[in-house]
């Protein structure tokens, strides 16, 4: 009898663990470059976010060709000259919510947490730490953060004649409305 109870408890804990994953395939990633000459921004609304609330692991993946620019020509230059999207089609972030236990996804509220991990752009990975907010409401978790990335850190070269048009430091915004992942 004890074995049966133990097995049921184990099964329950396994399913409870699996239920701790949240995701979206419609997440947002945006970047913004500001110089005296011009502002350049692009948005990608088809970003996959997966968050495991048990381990705190967070995974973000985006396809480079899905960043939309106002001008088609800018988009072409971004894909061909800067991120070389044929060679490096994805941007990924793999990291961890450091104080994941401070976030109660069963209780509505706004929580802040440090997220750290490795961002790979243009085939080059670099570690980042940023503060993120997690707004829990009615079974959804809206995750949001903003941080800066230097082009040179990811081996993205800006031509000398465009140094005044493209900022060396790009502001990245990330936002995702996450719901429970059920198989």
């Amino acid at each position: 009898m004890k074995k049966i109870i133990l097995s049921i408890a184990l099964l329950a804990s396994v399913s409870a663990t699996q239920a701790q994953k949240y995701f979206t395939r419609n997440g947002h990633l945006g970047f913004f470059s500001k110089t005296n000459m011009e502002d350049i921004k692009a948005n990608n609304e088809s970003v996959t976010y997966i968050v495991d609330w048990t381990s705190g692991e967070i995974q973000i993946s985006a396809l480079q060709t899905n960043f939309k620019f106002e001008k088609a020509l800018m988009q072409e230059h971004y894909n061909e000259n800067y991120v070389e999207s044929t060679k490096f089609p994805k941007a990924t972030f793999k990291g961890k919510i450091e104080n994941v236990n401070a976030i109660n996804i069963k209780k509505d509220g706004t929580y802040t947490a440090n997220v750290s991990g490795s961002l790979e752009i243009h085939g080059v990975s670099k570690n980042y730490t940023t503060k993120a907010t997690f707004k829990v409401s009615g079974g959804h978790v809206v995750a949001e953060t903003k941080f800066n990335v230097k082009c040179a850190d990811h081996n993205i070269k800006i031509e000398a004649n465009l140094k005044n048009n493209i900022s060396e430091s790009i502001e990245i915004t990330a936002k995702a409305d996450l719901t429970e992942l059920k198989k």
Binding site: Q18, K21, F23, R25, S46, T48, I50, Q59, S61, A62, L63, T65, N66, P89, K90, L181, K183
Partner: peptide, 20 residues
């Protein structure tokens, strides 16, 4: 649609091909 590529999922979430 224009094929933008493929994103892997994980053990619970299948992969995704994106057309735009």
């Amino acid at each position: 649609g224009l094929c933008a590529g493929f994103l892997e999922g994980d053990e619970l979430l299948g992969g995704e091909i994106q057309l735009n």
